[in-house]
Every structure is written in C-alpha cells, then in structure tokens.
Design a protein around this nucleic acid. Structure first.
Lengths: 164, 164
DNA sequence: ATCATATGTCAGGCTGCCTGACATAGATAC
DNA sequence: GTATCTATGTCAGGCAGCCTGACATATGAT
C-alpha cells in the first residue's frame, strides 16, 4: 500500500476548522436555536461588549466591510443583533448583541468549550494547549517568500489584511 | 470580563489556513506559474502518483464529486492534469499530473516547506511539530454534542463526510 | 465653506459548493 | 443472456460567501 506522505498543513488546518465549524453549527441547531451560518458565527465572536462598528468587525474577520455588512444584516434580521447610533460619532453605528443574541453567543461559547474538551480527550490537554499556542501566532504578514521574483500588490482602501 | 484574549479555535484555524493558502498561491504566482485557485491546489495535493479517480479525490477533499470535477476541469484546461482511461476498469478515468503539473506540484511542495520553516523561526520547531501532531487527529466524526434536548441525525445519501 | 477621510450601504459579479439528473460501464441476480 | 443494481463521470441549475465599484453621510483638517 501507499504511504500517506505527510499531509500538507493547509489541508490539515482546513479539516480541523471544518470539524469545529460543522460541529458547532449542528449543535446550535440541535439545541433548538435559529440556523446560523458560519460567517455569522464568526462575526458573533469578534463583537465586543461595548459594541463594535461594521468596519471594525470586518477587520477582525479578515473580510471587507461589505461582507461583514452582509453577515450583520442577516443577524439583525434574525433578531440577534441590533444597530445603535454611536454617541461619540454620528457616522458610526454600533452593532451589539440583543439579549437573544447574547444568549446564543453564550450557548456557542459553551459548545466550543465542549468541543475543545472532546478534542483534549483524544489528543491530550497538553496537545490542545500547544495547538492554541501555535495558532495564536500573529500571522499578520503575507510572507511573499519569493522563490523567483517578488510581486507587488496594491494596498486597497479596505483590504482584508487579517491583522488582529 | 470574559477573557477577550482567548480567541476561538475555529477562527484561529481559519486564519492560519488563510495565511498558508494565500502565501502559497502568491508565491506560486510570483514564481511565474499559472494562477491556481485554492481548491485546485487542494486537489493537487490529494493525487497519488498512480493516478486517482475524481470520486476518490472528492472523498479526500471532503467535497462532492461535482465540486472535485470542477477543479479537475480547470486543471486539465490549464494543462497541469490529464485524464487517462483506467486499464482496470473502463468506467473509470484516472486523473494524473502532466509533467507540467508535476513541476508545479514540486514547486508548491517547496513553497510549503519554506512556509513551515518560516513558521518554525517564529514559534520554534517543536511548536510546529506539535501543531502537526495535533492537526493529524482523525477528525472524522461529527460530534453532535447536544447541549439541549433534541438530538437530530441526518445520514444523507452521498454527503461529503470528510473522513480520511 | 471646502476638501480629504472614514464609515455604512446597495448593486453587480465571480467562485466554490451544493443538489438533481443523466449516461456509461462493471457487478450481480435471475 | 438479460435485467437490475451500483459506482463513476459529467452537465445544468442554484445558493452562499466574498469581492469590487459606487454612492451617501458624517467628521476633521484646511
């Protein structure tokens, strides 16, 4: 038989991500909550208690304002998010979880903890901690490790630039 | 406060994946290769030397045959993949890398190694190994950990079922 | 007042992924 | 030998996420 040669990291990362994501959304739905999409779930997790702007959320999600706006729209329609004017600046609208949204958020947090515990049972608590530690690397930079010649990319107005 | 510094695993996994993916595709393009999409790259990585069927590739990618077929189509059009009849079974068509595709594949492998080395510089070789080890967990199972009461299960006809 | 900038929103388009449907070919039952 | 079942490959249609482009509005600098 063939030897599965050292599978590639991007693929492994993707699988792990999918595992968590699917399990969480399924568990949320199994708990009787409204259906939540993956980006909505991600949006939920980048919100602060004090309220956040769409732009700020987009930066944290690593997507454009427009994409984040879409997720916000869905969540507002579902009654889990609300938009309130920012007292400090009238051009801003803060997005905030409604009580309902807060409840779902807490639920999601519990699920995630459970999932992590489930993982710890399999690979050990130390391994999970090591995983976290490794992943918390500030990936911010696009290495552009040029084997040949380097390429230049224009810094757009609101590029994703996942920097957290 | 609820520990805002403790970011959620799915998000961390997604960021890491994006980092690798973007860096690799950018490096590939910077090296003068034809543009490759993310799923095409993934497809490339699940091929065996002996040739693989679209169905098998789909299973390994965790997507449907149709989706895999799409990626294959693009790669064939780009001259990096070829489809040959399977001598063992006429209803199968094996997909195989062309010499051109083989070259690009090797290139991609080098880039990935470089990226991993780059990561090792930041977090240490041990941490990278630990990351690998943790990620190579067989995620195969959909935990369905029900916090609430209703437990629902849906065994679909030909679901992706990322089981590897 | 005017202009540059940041933010929020909508419109349109691309791509990945899905389900549905169908053709083909090997395996199995009769 | 024929009929049926199953696995595979392919195409068509549709949905969702993410993007760029464009525009309105509000703030701050000049």
């Amino acid at each position: 038989m063939r030897r599965p040669t050292h599978r590639q990291l991007p693929q492994l990362l993707g699988e792990a991500r999918r595992w968590f994501e699917e399990a969480m959304l399924a568990a949320l739905e199994a708990a009787g909550e409204q259906p939540v999409s993956a980006p909505q779930s991600q949006l939920f997790s980048v919100l602060e208690d004090g309220g956040t702007t769409v732009s700020e959320a987009a930066r944290r999600m690593g997507v454009t304002r427009q994409t984040a706006h879409q997720a916000v729209h869905g969540l507002v329609a579902a009654g889990m998010l609300e938009q309130v004017p920012d007292p400090a600046s009238a051009r801003r609208r803060l997005i905030r979880r409604t009580p309902e949204g807060e409840r779902v958020h807490r639920q999601a947090g519990l699920i995630l903890e459970g999932l992590e515990a489930r993982l710890a049972e399999r690979i050990g608590r130390d391994a999970v901690d090591a995983l976290r530690a490794a992943l918390e690397t500030p990936w911010g930079d696009p290495p552009t490790l040029a084997l040949g010649r380097s390429r230049e990319s224009g810094p757009e107005a609101s590029a994703p630039e996942a920097s957290g």
